[in-house]
């Protein structure tokens, strides 16, 4: 077994069992804010205990260990084929160890071969950069939150949403309303304004690589992020949709160019069990530092 494979198995274990500190802080804050004696508070207490227990037992925070999405930033000339082969082996091994559920189903036959490896699984995105570093991020995104993602095409007549930022605000808030508690709130939104149908969703997911306290560099988008967060938390959907003060923990928005004919707003929802981790490798295999 290669050292890179060991490092990737450890990355998967850590992502599956340990909530990143920025997400943990946001959950603790929402527990403090919640009205005492409500079932919303009880639910958040169970969530808090679950986070602690998963870390201590080194077992999955959530049994739906989700889509396995790798983002790799690699130097020019890096052997992507070998990395991907190693990642597939690491995923199979991590599944045997119980860090991942047997979670990948053949869409035609309905069979689950228990390896988590198959066409389109795991998902691996490479991006070259001019630094000599190899940076690997991993996101595990469960099906419950994936299912409440939504893509709107503007103008949207029913929601009276036009092709401007106010129209974007209307459809994003509609997505929060439609999701209710089904995506395991309090959640985090990743949004892409523009792009095509595929890249819109792709970029919306990449927003989850940003830390929760991170502020948007574009003033218009920063304002929209803060507005949606505040407004969503006034809707009273609350943790698990039980009613309560925290519906969202964060909102992250990016923009991509679009065609004159298209205006998509793509919204991905991440559950409270927000599993992301990453590392920078020293050379090509040993972990130098963790990213989250």
């Amino acid at each position: 077994m290669s050292e890179l494979q060991d490092s990737l198995v450890e990355l998967i274990r850590r992502a599956s069992a340990e909530i990143p500190s920025d997400v943990n802080d946001a959950i603790i804050q929402s527990l403090e804010n919640e009205k005492k004696g409500t079932i919303a508070e009880s639910a958040l207490k169970i969530i808090e205990r679950n986070i602690e227990l998963a870390k201590r037992k080194s077992q999955p925070i959530c049994q739906d260990t989700g889509s396995i999405i790798f983002y790799i930033e690699c130097p020019v000339g890096y052997d992507q084929i070998t990395f991907e082969e190693t990642a597939r082996k690491a995923v199979t091994l991590a599944t045997k160890k119980g860090y991942l559920r047997q979670n990948s189903v053949d869409s035609i036959s309905g069979k689950n071969d228990g390896t988590n490896v198959g066409p389109g699984a795991p998902i691996v995105h490479f991006h070259q950069h001019r630094s000599p570093e190899l940076k690997v991020s991993l996101m595990l995104k469960g099906g419950g939150c994936e299912n409440v993602g939504a893509q709107y095409s503007l103008p949207h007549e029913k929601l009276k949403a036009g092709r401007d930022l106010d129209g974007c605000r209307k459809v994003i808030l509609d997505a929060v309303l439609q999701a209710q508690g089904k995506g395991c709130g309090p959640g985090i939104l990743g949004v892409c304004i523009g792009g095509d149908r595929a890249t819109g969703y792709e970029y919306s997911k990449q927003q989850f690589l940003r830390r929760i306290p991170d502020r948007n560099k574009m003033p218009e988008l920063d304002e929209l992020e803060q507005d949606i967060l505040k407004t969503a938390n006034e809707l009273g959907i609350g943790p698990m949709g039980f009613g309560g003060k925290t519906t969202l923990l964060g909102v992250k928005i990016c923009a991509a160019n679009r065609l004159p004919a298209s205006y998509f707003v793509s919204i991905s929802y991440m559950c409270w069990a927000f599993r992301r981790q990453g590392f920078v490798l020293n050379g090509e295999s040993a972990i130098e530092r963790w990213l989250y």
Binding site: I47, N50, L53, Q59, C62, Q63, G142, G144, C271
Partner: peptide, 13 residues
């Protein structure tokens, strides 16, 4: 009966 989504460890115990 609504159990807490994502609370896989508390519930497994």
């Amino acid at each position: 009966l609504h159990s807490v989504g994502g609370a896989a460890q508390v519930l497994a115990e």
